[in-house]
Amino acid sequence: MKWFEIALVVLTLGSGLVLLLDKLFLAKRRAAKASLLDSEEPVVVDYSRAFFPVLAVVLILRSFIAEPYKIPSSSMMPNLLIGDFILVNKFSYGFRLPVTNTKVIPVSEPERGDVVVFQFPGHPGQPEDPQIGENFIKRVIGLPGDHISFHGDAVSINGQPVSYEVKGEYLFDGKQTGQTLLTENLPGRTHTVLEQLGVADPRGQGEWEVPQGHYLVMGDNRDNSDDGRFWGVLPEQNLRGKAFLIWLNCSGWFCKNSFEPSRIGNRIQ
């Protein structure tokens, strides 16, 4: 949530500034007046001294090390489920400034098959799209310079069809979903996807040239994902990090609605 990130930065900088001003000016004034007046430390300084270290540590960890996210939709099933709480490696693709997401130190670039969190760039022709800037999660299919096609139920990369293995009907909570579970063998990376075989959505069909500095991303739940097939390629500067771990799955306050311990600690493939 971007508002939380902004609030965290403002509170950290604000409390730090209060402590700096106190050290440079206010503390000296209180010391000078100690013999005449009550020199008790102001409340705002007291609170800043208590909260600044905590805020600073949270800001550093969240901005440069790992950030938690909650999966809100089914677009990455069967690998990520609604209610999964995940951790995202914030330095995989370079150190970026909070709020602006500006890269300041490059580290590496996404690889095909990576599951990435990014700021949604928006649908073409919808400049007022309310989801612009919100965090999305998808899988990298196309790298810079690639020609990607998606026809029927299959991906082709630079003219080479990706191979698939049918694993059987996908069941969720023991119930039939009408979808088929397949293994998708991307070059250098194998993972599972869901398809309604023989029921291809014509809106998701097409071919894309991936320019330099961009990526084509898709959801693993191919028939239920708003991804690059519909809004185009993803600019590199929108990347937030690489998803790598599920640390919890639950819903409701204190997990009162559901709790799935088998999801805890699963690595994101």
Rank of each mutant, 00 (worst) to 15 (best):
residue 53 P to S: 08
residue 164 Y to R: 11
residue 266 N to H: 14
residue 1 M to Q: 07
residue 204 G to K: 14
residue 84 D to E: 10
residue 82 I to R: 09
residue 190 T to F: 05
residue 213 G to S: 07
residue 118 F to E: 03
residue 112 R to I: 01
residue 178 G to Y: 05
residue 71 I to N: 01
residue 166 V to G: 00
residue 30 R to W: 05
residue 8 L to E: 01
residue 178 G to C: 10
residue 267 R to Q: 13
residue 96 R to G: 00
residue 130 P to K: 04
residue 258 S to W: 04
residue 112 R to K: 06
residue 253 W to H: 11
residue 4 F to H: 08
residue 138 K to I: 12
residue 206 G to F: 01
residue 24 L to E: 04
residue 193 V to F: 07
residue 15 S to T: 14
residue 121 P to V: 01
residue 78 P to S: 12
residue 149 S to R: 12
residue 116 V to K: 00
residue 255 C to D: 10
residue 210 V to C: 08
residue 173 D to N: 15
residue 231 W to Q: 12
residue 178 G to I: 08
residue 172 F to R: 14
residue 206 G to V: 05
residue 110 P to F: 02
residue 10 V to C: 02
residue 211 P to Q: 08
residue 240 R to V: 04
residue 87 L to D: 06
residue 77 M to L: 15
residue 243 A to H: 08
residue 89 N to H: 10
residue 124 P to A: 13
residue 223 D to P: 08
residue 242 K to I: 02
residue 141 I to R: 00
residue 191 H to P: 00
residue 175 K to D: 14
residue 165 E to Q: 11
residue 75 S to R: 03
residue 24 L to Q: 13
residue 165 E to L: 07
residue 23 K to E: 14
residue 217 V to M: 12
residue 22 D to M: 01
residue 94 G to R: 04
residue 222 R to T: 04
residue 119 Q to W: 03
residue 257 N to C: 09
residue 102 T to V: 11
residue 176 Q to I: 09
residue 209 E to M: 09
residue 17 L to F: 05
residue 91 F to L: 08
residue 65 I to P: 00
residue 253 W to T: 14
residue 258 S to M: 11
residue 140 V to P: 03
residue 163 S to Y: 02
residue 90 K to T: 00
residue 43 V to Q: 08
residue 100 T to P: 02
residue 226 D to H: 13
residue 225 S to G: 13
residue 74 S to D: 14
residue 184 E to Y: 02
residue 97 L to T: 02
residue 211 P to H: 07
residue 148 I to H: 03
residue 189 R to A: 14
residue 258 S to P: 05
residue 151 H to L: 11
residue 5 E to R: 10
residue 247 W to P: 04
residue 77 M to T: 05
residue 134 E to D: 11
residue 268 I to M: 08
residue 195 E to V: 13
residue 209 E to C: 01
residue 29 R to N: 07
residue 175 K to V: 10
residue 158 N to F: 09
residue 76 M to T: 03
residue 41 E to V: 15
residue 201 D to L: 15
residue 212 Q to N: 11
residue 156 S to G: 04
residue 215 Y to K: 06
residue 103 K to H: 00
residue 171 L to P: 06
residue 76 M to S: 03
residue 91 F to V: 09
residue 223 D to M: 09
residue 17 L to H: 05
residue 135 N to V: 11
residue 266 N to A: 13
residue 244 F to Q: 03
residue 223 D to K: 07
residue 110 P to L: 05
residue 125 G to H: 07
residue 162 V to I: 09
residue 8 L to Y: 01
residue 194 L to S: 10
residue 96 R to M: 00
residue 56 A to E: 06
residue 265 G to E: 12
residue 176 Q to A: 15
residue 125 G to R: 04
residue 145 G to T: 05
residue 261 P to A: 01
residue 151 H to C: 03
residue 145 G to V: 12
residue 81 L to V: 13
residue 169 E to G: 10
residue 73 S to H: 01
residue 121 P to H: 02
